[in-house]
């Protein structure tokens, strides 16, 4: 569904130094520099896949999404989405994709969302029957019924995002680009959005490429992740494998029937947390079996669980490694 080969996107940008004097100088002389927003990345995504796109701010995620949706021309490389070259912006291509940006909205601010729906129905030339069916389905899935008649400006951020999603999916696109769709939403609304995206993906077999700051989004939605840093693709594979590779260690969480000395825990591995009758110990993959056995035999255990390190930490470590290399 999506084929990307050796994609490069470079910009020449004007550096704007702070301060009045510098600004005055730049009236006459503008220093430029080349920013390699995307620097030789290749990947391919099959129809119906859900892929998470991870990376720190400015890594090139949004640029890649904009190239894939035809807004930006690649500097170099070949891109194919749904059988079309995105930059041609052919009608048949635009009919098959959608881009949802958590920070920007297409809903008309002072009119009810239903008005934007009608507008998009006309623009995408959706047959009446199909429109009504899709709308009914989206309304049910997202519980939009009470929202459709209120002016957009009166909706909460979460309600607005639900309507944004609906309006973006009205033409039943085959490819969904979601750029930070859950930004600023509360936890339950994030879960709603996630659930909906998965539902849409399964029901219509649509391909989903999602960027998010919230690891939860990616963990819950995307069996496959791609990690981009400084314009380069540094990982492409399953989330599980990524975690194993970056942080081969495990976390052993023990709950005790009575407090123990820190010393007793340190014999198991590195102590991350230690509070009265509860402790978190970091253990390498290889030493895990031994450590579990030793804990069972030496500690007054109430309960013992083994977990992967938290995703946020995995990411932090991943990018820290990238920087060091």
């Amino acid at each position: 569904m999506i084929e990307v080969e050796h994609l490069r996107k470079w910009y020449r940008v004007h550096r704007r130094p702070p301060g009045l004097a510098a600004a005055l100088r730049s009236l006459f002389h503008r220093p430029y520099e080349t920013v390699k927003a995307v620097d030789d990345i290749s990947f391919s995504i099959a129809a119906g896949e859900r892929v998470g796109f991870l990376g720190p701010n400015g890594a090139g995620k949004t640029t890649t999404l904009k190239v894939l949706s035809g807004l930006l021309h690649p500097t170099e490389g070949r891109v194919l989405v749904a059988g079309s070259t995105p930059q041609d912006r052919a009608r048949s291509f635009l009919q098959q994709i959608t881009l949802v940006m958590g920070q920007k909205q297409q809903l008309l601010w002072d009119l009810p969302p239903s008005e934007t729906f009608l507008l998009n129905r006309a623009i995408y030339d959706i047959p009446k029957k199909e429109y009504e069916a899709t709308l009914a389905e989206l309304t049910a899935l997202l519980e939009l019924a009470p929202l459709l008649g209120k002016p957009t400006r009166q909706l909460s951020l979460g309600e607005r995002m639900k309507c944004e999603l609906a309006v973006a999916l009205l033409h039943r696109p085959k490819v969904l680009f979601l750029d930070e769709p859950t930004i600023g939403l509360d936890v339950s609304m994030q879960a709603t959005v996630r659930g909906f995206v998965r539902e849409y993906n399964q029901r219509f077999g649509a391909t989903v490429l999602l960027t998010s700051h919230y690891m939860e989004d990616v963990a819950a939605l995307c069996p496959r992740v791609m990690v981009i840093d400084k314009g380069k693709l540094i990982y492409d594979g399953s989330l599980h494998e990524l975690v194993r590779r970056v942080r081969p260690d495990k976390r052993m969480i023990v709950r005790l029937t009575r407090p123990v000395e820190r010393r007793d825990l340190e014999s198991l591995g590195a102590v991350v947390e230690h509070r009265d009758a509860e402790a978190v110990v970091q253990v390498t993959q290889d030493a895990l079996q031994g450590a579990v056995a030793r804990a069972l035999s030496t500690l007054p255990l109430h309960d013992l669980t083994v977990e992967d390190p938290p995703l946020e930490e995995v990411m932090r470590d991943l990018f820290a490694q990238g920087r060091a290399a």
């Binding site: 904009k66 949706s69 807004l71 009608r91 635009l94 881009l99 940006m101 909205q105 998009n120 623009i123």
Partner: peptide, 13 residues
């Protein structure tokens, strides 16, 4: 300025 032109460009009109 606000970057919302992108959304207009994505529509097939």
């Amino acid at each position: 300025r606000q970057g919302t032109l992108a959304l207009r460009l994505l529509r097939p009109i």
